[in-house]
Nucleic acid binder design. Structure first.
Lengths: 136, 136
DNA sequence: AGTGGTTTGGTACTTTAGTATGACCTATTT
DNA sequence: AAATAGGTCATACTAAAGTACCAAACCACT
C-alpha cells in the first residue's frame, strides 16, 4: 500500500514535470506545439493502460495466485503437495506413483494424510477445497 | 472482430476531431492552451484505461465463460451435466443421488456415460478435461 | 549420536467408483 | 403406431480408492 502511494506520487510529479517542460520548450521555440501535445497524449494513454493493468492485477491475485502460506498452515509437505497436483491432473494413485517414481502404497499414504489435512472425504472434495483455499 | 475494428476507427476519428477542435479553439482564443492540453491528457488517459480493460476482458472470457456449444457437441444431456457439477463439488455418487432425488444406481449410469463422452477414465480426469474444454 | 519430521512401503481390510447388461417408463419425433 | 432418446433403477461384477497400522530408511539439526 505504501509502495503504491509512493509510485503514484512519483508518477504525478513526473507528469507535471513533463507538462512544464513541454510548455517551456514550446515557448522557447525548441519544440513544435502539436508535437508536444502528441507526446502528452501518448504518455497519458500509456499511464492509463499501466494503472488499469495494475488495479486489475490486484483483483486477480486474490483469486488466482496460489497461497503458499495456506499450504504451510495446513502442514502439507512438498511430497503431499505433488500428490495433490497429480490428483488435480486427473491421475490415478498408480499413475501418480509412476510419475513420482514411488509405489502406489506410498501415494495412498500421502492421499490419506492429504485428505485428513484438507478435511475432505474424497479426492474430488479435496480438489474443491484446495481450489477454494487457492492452494492449487 | 469487425465490431472491434469499427470501434477503433470511430475512436481514432473522435480523437483527431478533439485534437483539431482544441487547436482551433486555442488559436481563436476561446480556450486556454493549458486547459486544452489537460483535456487531451485526461481523455487519452481514459482511452488507455478503456482499451486495456477491453483487451483484458477478452482474455478472460475465453477461459472463464462456460462453453454451452461444446456441451451439445459432446452429446452431454442436462441430467448428465448436473451430475458433472455434483462431481466438481466433490460429492460422492450417493450424495449426488440425494441431491437430485434419484438412486445411486442412476448416478452411476450417468457417471459412466459421462466418462465415455468426455473420454475419461476417472471422475477426477473428467473434471480436468471439463475444465480444459470450459464446460465447467 | 539421538530426535523429529518426512518419505517410503507393506498388509489387510472396507468403502466407493466404475462397467456391463437388461429392464421399464415417458416424452418426442417420424 | 412405432421408433427414438433420455431418464430411471437393479444386479453382479471388477477395479480403484481410502483407512488403519506398522515399520524402516532418510535427512536436518542440535
Amino acid at each position: 500500500m505504501k509502495k503504491t502511494i509512493l509510485i503514484f506520487g512519483l508518477l504525478i510529479l513526473a507528469l507535471l514535470l513533463l507538462f512544464q517542460f513541454s510548455k517551456y520548450a514550446v515557448i522557447s521555440g525548441d519544440l513544435d506545439s502539436e508535437f508536444a501535445i502528441a507526446i502528452i497524449a501518448v504518455v497519458f494513454f500509456f499511464v492509463g493502460v499501466y494503472l488499469n493493468k495494475k488495479s486489475l492485477q490486484k483483483q486477480q491475485t486474490a483469486s488466482e495466485v496460489i497461497n503458499h502460506q495456506k499450504i504451510k498452515d495446513l502442514d502439507i509437505s512438498k511430497r503431499e503437495y505433488e500428490v495433490l497436483v497429480g490428483i488435480s491432473e486427473g491421475l490415478s494413485n498408480k499413475e501418480i506413483g509412476e510419475k513420482l517414481f514411488v509405489s502406489e502404497s506410498t501415494i495412498k499414504t500421502h492421499v490419506s494424510n492429504l485428505l485428513s489435512k484438507l478435511n475432505a472425504k474424497r479426492r474430488t472434495q479435496a480438489l474443491q477445497i484446495a481450489k477454494d483455499l487457492n492452494i492449487i
